[in-house]
Design a protein around this nucleic acid. Sequence first.
DNA 1: AAAAATGGTCATGTGGTTGTAACATTTGCT
DNA 2: AGCAAATGTTACAACCACATGACCATTTTT
Lengths: 228, 228
Amino acid sequence: MAATILVVEDEPAIQELIAYNLKQAGHQPLRADNAEQAMNLVQSALPDLVLLDWMLPGQSGIDFARRLRTDKRTRTVPIIMLTARSDEQDKLMGLDAGADDYITKPFSPRELNARIKAVLRRRAPQMTDDVVQLGGLKLDPASHRISGNGEPVILGPTEFRLLHFLMTHPERVHSRTQLLDQVWGDHVFVEERTVDVHIRRLRKALEPTRLDRLVQTVRGTGYRFSAI
Amino acid sequence: MAATILVVEDEPAIQELIAYNLKQAGHQPLRADNAEQAMNLVQSALPDLVLLDWMLPGQSGIDFARRLRTDKRTRTVPIIMLTARSDEQDKLMGLDAGADDYITKPFSPRELNARIKAVLRRRAPQMTDDVVQLGGLKLDPASHRISGNGEPVILGPTEFRLLHFLMTHPERVHSRTQLLDQVWGDHVFVEERTVDVHIRRLRKALEPTRLDRLVQTVRGTGYRFSAI
DNA sequence: AAAAATGGTCATGTGGTTGTAACATTTGCT
DNA sequence: AGCAAATGTTACAACCACATGACCATTTTT
């Protein structure tokens, strides 16, 4: 897991409860009481997921969701709406505003965690700690171990994240820019060609297991992980 | 086990019965008839678990649970709700207020003990008295003794708790923050690097048995206990 | 009260990690 | 074939994370 999750909730008790549960589940909660505060936090550090209360003082939750969806940088951040009403209309509006899921209060911590995991699995699988097994390679985020054809593979931190992302998004080409955004993170200023170097290091580490062939170059476009 | 368990129950007969059973199971019961009394007890000595009656005179059980969850110091204390109703709605609200489990009256001592053990194990496996044996290391919480390959290992209190946590959560990387939360307690303000020092002390104590290799560094992420 | 144990912080050294540049090689195209 | 663009490969310097020992304050034991 270990995702950074922004909680936008004006009720202190509920905010506290949610933050506590997120921490227990291994996430890192960021808190905001209103949309403006949330916007500032998003500006400085892009969260991996947003838990957004429907009813907020000032700008409403839906408006905030729409703003997130408008900006290119924040467009892909998953959003889960928290709502007190179980009204179908609200659900539709929330989903229309770009929410990935919504939870009706009151909800149990168990349900919250389940939905967060589901959304992350769908939108950012490299954030979960599910074991990824593909083409003879096995990557276990929890124990931070990799094995290829049974043999252990040793990687540096960056190569580990890179491989994890590639394995959770296989059979599709990623441009260098996309890889920088996803693996290095937002707000990082690094040369594009640096990706090449890390791809090289990754391949080199995989060579002993002959699994370096899984990391493929697509000339003019980027790189791809393919088990086929 | 040997946990300190706070029983909040207004019915004297039931309180007595529960306290007796807890004592039989090796726990140390603290008793309170109402929320205020319970709050005082919690203030003076933090229990390892709270058994909380749903129906209380004055402040209700749920409110008390919420108060426990709000205060930083008591946030992590597991709560088991005792309820006469078997209503599904109540179950959800109890969990929402932060309860870890609930038992419907009437219940058998056996069921109570099972749930207590389960909650303690789930919430904090390192709190139970079960002997942990892994990779040639044997840690006995009850006698507070450790042996590596048959030879006794002497540890300070913090190193003991650290090793206990690591051994009950093996094959998985823990960040310094997680270790501080789990081993030191999350209301403590300590430098992250302090973890390094205690890892060092733990390793040093394990060196004579050559078992220090079980405590592994995962650069950029944290530490891992691995018997593999 | 003295002695010992414990716990947290800091300074320092070391080795791993990272980004970049420079050069080599491959690829696609005319 | 010859050329230009894209990618592979290597070397390296700066940086960062970790290990380690020392130190001091505090607590516990004697």
